[in-house]
């Protein structure tokens, strides 16, 4: 009987060892970022290397950690890119790390801003800005040739009527668009801030309306209505301060030129 007991003990301990190592493996897999696994599942798994990474898992890790461009997967095409983006967006939103998001400090659409010449050159903001500072009369306005759009890894930026707009639901505040704008119009604002002054004009206030209908003329209307100092006037330009209050929307809607804009519109 003794050998049976020995065998029983051996089998049980061996089974326990296998079970333990399996659980440890599961545990290790659990410890790895679940989003990396999700991203890897979205990718086609050909390990072709077109994206410049060793294989699909490596690319997934790079997407999460190095901020790689999700549009680089050629076999996957646009559908894969869209899925990858949605995971990245979800992660940015859910993780709570993104406390800021980008806005374009200009609302000079083609209807509002006047132009001094027609630009037919290379479709790139820096190229357009190199020629007389761009076609718009306002030399601090959005040129609308989409350099920021191309810099955004999440596709959060769109050009509407010749002016860039950041979608606040998609933007994670990574800040890559900031350096793409030759006019330095993009800035990161706290995620709670719903209204901002969408004008960056540097001309004297009285000359700004000549260039653009939606310019901030530093009239001070917003500052007058700001009982708690929601908006302040500084250096001929209105600024949103970081004082939150119920009356934000009323103050913003009172802007006579519409230079105070709701984020994402």
């Amino acid at each position: 009987m003794q050998w049976i007991t020995a065998l029983f003990v051996f089998l049980v301990s061996f089974g326990a060892f296998l079970g333990a190592s399996f659980l440890a493996g599961v545990g290790r897999r659990r410890m790895r970022d679940p989003d990396a696994a999700r991203l890897a599942r979205i990718l086609p798994g050909y390990d072709c290397g077109v994206c410049g990474r060793v294989d699909c898992r490596d690319y997934a890790a790079a997407l999460l950690n190095d901020g790689a461009d999700p549009a680089l997967c050629l076999p996957g095409g646009s559908a894969t890119a869209a899925s990858l983006r949605s995971v990245l967006v979800e992660r940015g939103g859910a993780s709570g790390s993104a406390l800021k998001r980008a806005v374009v400090r200009c609302t000079g659409t083609s209807a509002a801003a006047r132009v001094s010449f027609a630009y037919e050159g290379y479709v790139d903001c820096a190229a357009a800005a190199a020629l007389y500072g761009g076609p718009k009369d306002c030399k601090n306005g959005c040129l609308g040739f989409g350099s920021c759009l191309r810099a955004c890894p999440l596709g959060a930026i769109r050009i509407e009527k010749g002016c860039a707009i950041v979608d606040p639901r998609v933007c994670t505040g990574c800040g890559k668009c900031l350096s793409a704008c030759p006019k330095d119009l993009l800035t990161l604002i706290p995620i709670e801030q719903r209204w901002f002054v969408a004008c960056s004009a540097k001309k004297p206030p009285e000359e700004r309306l000549k260039d653009c209908d939606t310019a901030c003329t530093a009239c001070g209307e917003c500052a007058r209505r700001s009982v708690q100092g929601e908006f302040v006037l500084d250096q001929d330009m209105a600024h949103a301060s970081l004082v939150w209050s119920e009356s934000w929307e009323d103050i913003a809607r009172a802007c006579p030129t519409g230079a105070i804009k709701r984020v994402g519109t």
Binding site: Y122, V123, A126, A127, A130
Partner: peptide, 12 residues
């Protein structure tokens, strides 16, 4: 628009 693309990059 080859040259414009190069010019932008070189000027940057």
């Amino acid at each position: 628009q080859l040259v414009a693309a190069f010019a932008v990059r070189l000027r940057q």
